[in-house]
């Protein structure tokens, strides 16, 4: 099972080797999709692969370690009222979550592929993209 999670760290939790522990202690495959750290803590978006039991135990471990854990539902939202379907975003999206349909010439946003990297946000001329995490 693959699960996308948003992790929030306070400054203390930022120093824990949580990725290592998820892999070594709980046998989970961890794919870091986004990670940032600043003076008030850090944020990570990860995708973990493993069986349900290990995933749940991993999440328990994170919570005990003081890491805020919530499921990643919607990372980036497109305002369809604003989007002009120009297509500027399609060549800069690293995960091909934004695709230009060659028939209709409309831009399709495939949310499942989006990792909320945010590259599209300031590339969109009418500012139709909003980051939510």
């Amino acid at each position: 099972m693959k699960t996308k999670l948003v992790l929030n760290f306070n400054p203390e939790a930022s120093n824990l080797p949580i990725t290592h522990n998820l892999i070594a202690e709980y046998g989970l495959l961890v794919n870091i999709l986004r990670a940032e750290i600043d003076e008030i803590g850090g944020k990570m978006v990860i995708e973990v692969s493993g069986d349900d039991d290990s995933t749940n135990k991993g999440v328990e471990y994170l919570k005990k370690a003081g890491v805020g854990v919530r499921p990643f539902k919607e990372g980036v939202r497109r305002n369809d009222e604003i989007c002009t379907h120009c297509g500027v975003c399609v060549s800069i999206c690293p995960t091909s979550a934004l695709i230009l349909d060659h028939e209709t010439r409309k831009v399709t946003f495939v949310e499942e592929k989006c990792v909320a990297c945010g590259v599209c946000i300031d590339a969109c001329p009418p500012r139709a993209m909003e980051i939510l995490i």
Binding site: T84, H85, C86, G87, V88, S91, L100, R105, K106
Partner: peptide
């Protein structure tokens, strides 16, 4: 077509004008 080759590199393309509109 969405891709062009420049100096041997496969490069994705983006329009700035909306063909849809």
């Amino acid at each position: 077509s969405g891709r062009v080759t420049i100096k041997g590199k496969d490069v994705p393309t983006s329009p700035l004008s909306s063909i849809y509109k």
